[in-house]
Design a protein around this nucleic acid. Structure first.
Lengths: 187, 187
DNA sequence: GTATCAATGATACGAACGTATCAACAGTCG
DNA sequence: CGACTGTTGATACGTTCGTATCATTGATAC
């Protein structure tokens, strides 16, 4: 097995653990068990735990940004925002896993871990820029600052709705109708 | 020092640690150091760590609900929602501490800790009921289900805005204007 | 063949945690 | 006075974590 394959195998295991139990579920031993390899191997390829986590989070961030970039280009700002929000809403296993990872990163960032904070900020900025680009492509007439403002509001709303959705304080339909309501009130 | 005073002294220490570093910052030894007492004393009054955390979180939840209940009663649904959102926005140290605690509870709830999940759900339901009650008192004409829907949307938005605010992805003014925008679009 | 070096596995080490144990002290009732 | 009970303190135990160490294997160059 090549180096890249081994690395992917281990990062895949980290990703699964992250999506299932958040950052606290990622221990070197748990990664080894999840990947079906020995602890020494995880050390060998991921050097330290921080490196391993950083690599997995970076890969996860890039991958979701790339996946989203390839989506069909919307033809209006409203459609752009609404399709992002509906896709980001944690209504299936994949998006629920992403939400767990995001909240884990958030709690690390706001409880005094500077490196995690800057990495998480970068991640959010990438997502926001992605939305802004799509909005501007859909409607070049809208101002970039206005697009950024709307993107931030959409990200906030979908994050909050996702949090309430994850613990079943909201149903998926209620969350979707809140998104539609936000959309309907866009000028 | 009486039993109640000792208990308060220790729970106060837990609360400070929670607000500063989230749940992971609460260790028996850290609580002892923060309260200025010995580890044995923390064990003596808080029996187990779970009991200690549960008691502190319950006290914190009740206290914030009570504090909010005593506020001036608004005279419209919109004013009720907006005053809640502006107050809940983490723009000062106290509300930022509360946001840290909330996100910590969330991450525990969504990563497979059933007891934390039900306790957190209960907490959110209490807050929602509080908002609904105030809305109905402000305008008895509005339907309870509509008030609950609006309360959930307000909670979602303020939670999401708070998350972006905490890591400085948003400024306080941007968050406030998003709240005003949400308010302006209420029917 | 064998020397060499990267890859892999088993195990050990120190730190931090929750919790338990044992000792010292203070107040109270007989 | 003395026995007892509840409170406080110091320390130890077992577990889990990240990491380090040591040994073994397998391929490749000479």
């Amino acid at each position: 097995m090549s180096v890249e394959e081994r690395t992917d195998q281990i990062l895949d295991a980290v990703e699964r653990l992250l999506g299932r139990g958040g950052i606290s579920a990622v221990t070197m031993r748990a990664v080894a068990a999840e990947a079906g390899v020995s602890l020494r191997l995880v050390q060998y390829y991921g050097s330290s735990k921080d490196d391993l986590l950083s690599a997995a989070l970076e890969r996860l961030s890039s991958r979701s940004v790339d996946a989203w970039t390839g989506e069909a280009t919307p033809d209006s700002v409203r459609e752009c925002l609404v399709s992002f929000m509906l896709a980001a809403l944690p209504t299936d296993d994949a998006s629920r896993a992403l939400h767990r990872v995001g909240v884990s990163r958030e709690v690390l960032a706001i409880t005094g871990h500077p490196a995690a904070a800057t990495a998480y900020r970068l991640h959010l900025t990438r997502i926001q820029n992605l939305i802004v680009d799509q909005c501007l492509r859909a409607d070049p007439a809208v101002s970039p600052s206005r697009a950024a403002e709307l993107a931030a509001q959409a990200m906030s709303l979908v994050h909050g709705l996702g949090s309430l959705l994850m613990i079943d304080h909201l149903t998926a339909d209620q969350a979707r109708s809140a998104v539609q309501n936000f959309d309907a009130n866009l000028s």
